[in-house]
Simulated assay, not measured.
Amino acid sequence: MATDKAFKVGIIIGSRRVVRVGPQIASFVHDIIKNAEEKAASPRRTVTFDVVDLKAVDLPFFDEPGIPQRIQSADGYAHEHTRAWSRRVAALDAFVFVTPQRNWSFPAELKNALDFLFHEWAGKPAMIVSYGGHGGHQCAEQLRAVLRAMRVRVTEKSVGFAFPDPDFRTKCFNGQELGLDASNDAGPWAAQRSEVVSAWDELLIPEY
């Protein structure tokens, strides 16, 4: 499936919490995927990544007068922050959503960022990586339902990172260093690396 055209993947950090570990986990997932691509036995498409931190994007609460599903290009939005967001998402070919679980669901800021757009997401493949006390599977299922309603082609496989012990959970809640290392076979969540790769491989299937 090699191709000269770069396959542009957005790794979406789905939390804007003041104290958070989302960027660490997104970096961990990013490194797992990059390692898998480097070790691929046969040539695959050229992949580039855009790490999209919703905290840096800093969208306001949805304030567009129009209905995104009826807007076909960035120029159709009323506000420059939406036009910029539209252009960034439209430039991507696929998405890896990295999201915490909050009260059995995914963060409001992620839902808000999704709701600003429609066609920019539609028709593209995506995978979900959730994390939480028990892995965040409930939030992943809710996010899956929302994405499918927006015509995103979500992989059947998803990944849930569960906090392995109370000390690790405390570090997560306090935004401390977690010691994540995609190359460490004995590090946190080392056993889940194969799940990330499996979901990633599914995402790469043409016209999945």
Rank of each mutant, 00 (worst) to 15 (best):
L147F: 11
I128T: 06
M150G: 07
V146S: 12
A122N: 09
A122S: 14
G135Y: 08
G136A: 08
P125D: 06
G135L: 05
R148C: 11
G135T: 02
P125W: 09
K124L: 08
M127D: 00
M127V: 05
G123W: 11
V146C: 11
Q142W: 11
K124H: 08
G123F: 10
A140Q: 09
L147I: 07
P125R: 08
S130C: 10
I128P: 01
I128D: 02
G136R: 04
A149Q: 12
M127E: 06
P125Y: 05
H137F: 12
V129E: 04
L147G: 06
W121S: 07
L147W: 01
L143M: 10
H137T: 13
A149N: 13
V129Q: 01
E141D: 15
W121L: 10
W121T: 06
Q138W: 10
E141F: 13
Y131I: 03
A140G: 11
C139T: 10
A145W: 07
P125K: 09
G123H: 09
G136S: 07
R148I: 14
E141Y: 12
R151I: 09
Q142C: 08
R148V: 12
R151Q: 15
P125S: 11
L143W: 00
V146F: 07
Q142G: 14
A126K: 01
S130A: 14
K124N: 03
R148G: 11
A145Q: 15
A149H: 12
Q142V: 07
A140M: 06
W121P: 00
C139Y: 01
M150T: 10
Y131R: 00
W121G: 07
W121F: 09
G133R: 03
R151S: 15
R144E: 03
L147E: 05
P125C: 05
C139N: 11
R144W: 00
R144F: 03
A126I: 02
Y131E: 00
P125T: 11
H137I: 13
A149I: 02
